[in-house]
């Protein structure tokens, strides 16, 4: 009886090579299945999202079909398949935030940025994610921008918060220029 080996997807040429991925892979020598999630996390941390090219390369490295990797990656809330914005916004929709008006806050953010959860604004400035409960219920309703928590937000204050990030980005761009 011959052993059935998993089909390894060759990396198609049309995928652009992913910069720095080799260095990340090298930090997991002899990686097996249990390294998959940390690997995906590292790649996403570096690039802001999981590109098709990155998944194909990881698939090759772990000898694991890309479909399996997509199966895992789409299961978890953390992984994104679109580039992340410069400011990544997490809106908590847990119970405590909900009873304090997070639905209206979420709508206000969507209206202001003209994007839905899981998307990135056209200017690449903001991306939006819904978190089931971020564990900051004492600060409800709460949003988190690049790891910084904003407590007790309202539909009005959230627009102001987004504006401060817009100004911050413009200022940083000016300084860089």
């Amino acid at each position: 009886m011959t052993a059935i080996l998993p089909q390894v997807t060759p990396v198609p040429e049309q995928f652009t090579p992913v910069p720095d991925i080799e260095a990340i892979l090298a930090s997991y020598p002899q990686a097996k299945r249990e390294s998959l999630i940390p690997l995906l996390q590292d790649v996403q941390e570096k690039h802001g999202y999981l590109s098709r090219g990155a998944i194909a390369r990881i698939s090759q490295y772990l000898s694991l079909p890309a479909s399996k990797i997509y199966g895992v990656a789409t299961f978890y809330n953390q992984f994104r398949f679109q580039p992340q914005g410069r400011y990544h916004i997490q809106v908590c929709r847990g119970t405590a935030c909900h009873v304090k008006g997070s639905a209206a806050v979420f709508e206000a953010v969507k209206r202001e940025l003209k994007i839905d959860a899981g998307q990135t604004s056209r200017d690449g400035l903001f991306s939006l994610e819904v978190v089931a409960c971020i564990g900051a219920c004492g600060l409800a309703p709460v949003i988190c921008v690049n790891g910084v928590f904003h407590a007790s937000v309202t539909t009005k204050s959230v627009v102001k918060i987004l504006d401060t990030y817009r100004r911050k980005a413009a200022k940083n761009d000016d300084e860089a220029a």
Binding site: E34, I37, L40, G71, V72, F75, Y76, N77, A132
Partner: peptide, 23 residues
């Protein structure tokens, strides 16, 4: 580091997730 799924709080879900699978 977990990857964001409520079900990972279930002990065998957590173990599956640790092994690099869906929880």
């Amino acid at each position: 580091r977990g990857a964001g799924a409520y079900i990972c709080g279930e002990e065998t879900g957590l173990i599956e997730s640790l092994e690099g699978k869906r929880a």
